[in-house]
Structure formats: structure tokens, C-alpha cells
Computed example of a mutant assay.
Amino acid sequence: MWDLNSVVLYFYLGMGLLALWGVSQAWLSQSRTETIHPFKAFVHLLAFYLSYLLIPLFFFSMYAGWSGYYSLHEAAFVFLVSGVFCYARFIEPHLVHVKTTRYQLHADKRLLKPVKIALVADLHIGLFSGHERQLKQIVSKLNQAQPDLVVVAGDWTYEPENTLAQELAVLKEIHAPVYSVNGNHDEQYPGPPIQALLRNALALNNVMDIEGQVVEFNEFRLIGIGDLWAGKADMRFMPELPQDKPWVILSHNPDTVDMVPALPSRPLMLSGHTHGGQVELPWLTDYVMKKVSILGHKKGLYRHEHADVFVSVGTGMVGVPLRFRVPPTIDMIELI
């Protein structure tokens, strides 16, 4: 029963059944998705679900090499390729890291009391990421870190299902106030018109949209600025605002930093958008990043003429359901 021919037959039969399951799941999920391109959403979901074929292929490659069904070179090649893809698809996207960066907000003095800001970006709840398992993990790590406030730098969605409010219910468990602005995927650049769906989901789950608003803290002010690609990143009014405290600016696209006007104290902008490349490959990732950020932002802290900008690699995925050498990250910005 378990001779070579039987094992090969069962393998291909299992792969066929798994493929049929993947197609059916992609079709059902697409029917619940808020999208303006149903076929495109179906294709993306098909890639997401058919990726489960990598798991049996990974284990079969070992058997095939041992049994002689594949040559050793063939088995090693399939083993390595399927193993890397399995890691990038099923393991790294769930390895949520917490990274701390200290930043002196005043050029010439320290704050009376350090303030810990948790920066979350690019959750991309929808086709590939931001589902219950990952959201619970993010909330748990946020509560363990005990920030004074949480800011979400946009791109909440990636063609989400129409149950977005229920999916975000876990955010109510965060033990700190949560402030947010939208990103390009939340503003239909690209993506479906989900602004009303997202606005309702955030309001129901205690997330404060601060686009165009100022939030007062003891030693600084937080201001929310709209998305650059959506044409909502005007900051010409900022010099007219009170300048007795330094500014922390929350805006999705880090290239928005180029629009910050000269202010008495140097602001810090918190952003996402780039995913840090999401899949880190030699040369190719840097080439793609030139199209994502004209100013060359990728991840970490950058200094510009009128402001500094910190770019988070975020937690979600778009384009392909993979993260490789760029694990999802919550950035703890400790203002000192």
C-alpha cells in the first residue's frame, strides 16, 4: 500500500483536493470582499489559498529524494525553494516584533517625563493579513509594552470583508488610547470606496481618527495629517498654530515630510507605507522601493530639512502574501 507508486498517487490526489479547496475558499472569500475588481481580488485570494500546496510539497521533496523519485539535486532544489516560500508565507508574517527607538524631541533639553508611543502601521486587514490571530497577537504585545498612547499610521485595509467592524473588535482590549489617520489603501488609492465602512468600524472600536485634528499632551502636541496620494497632506497652516510645544506628526506616507514647513522646533513625523520592502531581496527590493518612496524612505529614522521622519515596516502585506527578512513590527518610539 505504501510503495513508491502509491505514495506518489496519494500525493498528487491530495494536491488536487487541496487545490480544489483553495479555489472554493478564494471564491467564497471574494464574494464577501469590498472590491472594485472582483476578478483581481479572486486572483490574489487564489494565490493566498493555493500557497497551502507548498506544505505537502516541502515534505514530499524529502521523501522523493530519499526514495529516488527525484534526483538529489531536484529534491534539494524543491526542498529549498518550497521551504523558503513556506517560511515567508506561514511563519514570518506571524513573527510580530517589538522594536524600541529613543528620540529626543527637544534639541536642547529632555522631557520632564519620557513618553512611550506605540507606532503601528499598514495592518492591511483584508485579502492577506490582519485577521483574528495576528490582531490578537498585536494587541497582546501592545499591552505587554504598556505604551502611553498608540498611533496607527494608516493603511488599515486591503480590500477588506464587509465584517470589518467585527474583525476590529479586539482593538477594544488595548489599554491605551488609540489615534489614527488613513492611508492610501483606505482612501481608494488604490482600492474600493471603503471610507464609510472603515470610519464606522474605527468609531465602534474606540479608535480616534485625528486627521486634521490636534491632540494636546503635557510636553508636545500630536497632529494627524491626511494621505499624500489622496491629496490630503496640506501642512501650510501649521505655522499659524501654537508653537509653545514641539509637534509629533502622524501621517501615512513618509514622503509627506517634504511638505512640513519651517517651525520653531523640529517636528517628528511617524509614518508607514513602505513595509520596509516586505520581501527583502538583493537589488530587486531597492529597485521596487524607488517607486514606493520618491525620497528614498524604507525603514527607520531619516533627517530632512524641516523635520525628522520615522518609518515603520508595519505588520501587514499587499501584492503578495509574503514577508521575507522584514518581519511585522510594532515600533515603540520613546520620546525623551
Rank of each mutant, 00 (worst) to 15 (best):
M1T: 13
D3V: 11
N5Q: 14
S6K: 13
V8P: 03
F11P: 02
L13E: 10
M15S: 13
M15Y: 07
G16Y: 10
L17N: 06
A19R: 00
L20P: 08
W21N: 15
G22Y: 09
S29C: 12
S29N: 13
S31K: 15
S31Y: 00
T35Y: 03
L46S: 11
A47R: 00
A47E: 11
Y49V: 04
L53S: 01
L53Q: 12
L53F: 04
L57G: 11
F58N: 10
M62Q: 14
M62D: 12
Y63P: 02
G65Y: 11
S67Y: 07
Y69M: 06
S71Q: 00
L72Y: 12
L72P: 07
E74P: 02
V78P: 06
F79A: 13
L80H: 05
Y87G: 06
R89W: 02
E92L: 04
V96A: 08
H97E: 15
V98Q: 04
V98F: 07
V98K: 00
T100M: 13
R102T: 14
Q104L: 09
L105H: 02
H106C: 07
A107P: 02
D108F: 03
K109L: 09
R110T: 14
K116V: 09
I117R: 07
A118F: 07
H124D: 11
H124W: 09
I125R: 07
I125H: 10
S129L: 06
S129F: 04
H131V: 04
N143R: 04
A145M: 06
D148I: 05
D148K: 02
V150P: 09
V151A: 06
V151Y: 10
V152Q: 03
A153Y: 02
W156E: 11
T157K: 09
Y158L: 15
Y158D: 15
E161W: 08
N162Y: 09
N162G: 07
T163P: 03
L164F: 05
A169Q: 13
V170L: 04
V178M: 13
N184G: 12
E187D: 14
Q188M: 15
Y189A: 14
G191K: 10
G191Y: 03
G191Q: 06
P192D: 14
L197R: 12
R199M: 11
N205S: 06
N206K: 15
D209V: 12
E211P: 10
G212Y: 02
Q213R: 15
N218C: 01
R221V: 08
G224P: 11
G226N: 08
D227R: 05
L228Q: 12
A230L: 02
G231Q: 00
D234P: 06
L241F: 13
L241C: 05
Q243M: 10
D244W: 02
D244V: 03
K245A: 05
W247Y: 14
V248K: 06
S251E: 11
D255I: 01
T256E: 05
D258V: 12
M269G: 00
G276M: 03
L281R: 05
P282R: 10
P282T: 06
V288L: 13
K291H: 13
K291W: 12
V292W: 04
V292S: 07
H297C: 12
G300Q: 09
G300Y: 01
Y302P: 07
R303V: 11
D308R: 09
D308I: 00
D308W: 04
V311A: 06
V313W: 08
G314V: 03
T315V: 15
G316E: 05
G319N: 08
G319K: 03
V320W: 01
P321K: 06
P328W: 08
T329K: 08
I330G: 00
E334N: 10
L335W: 03
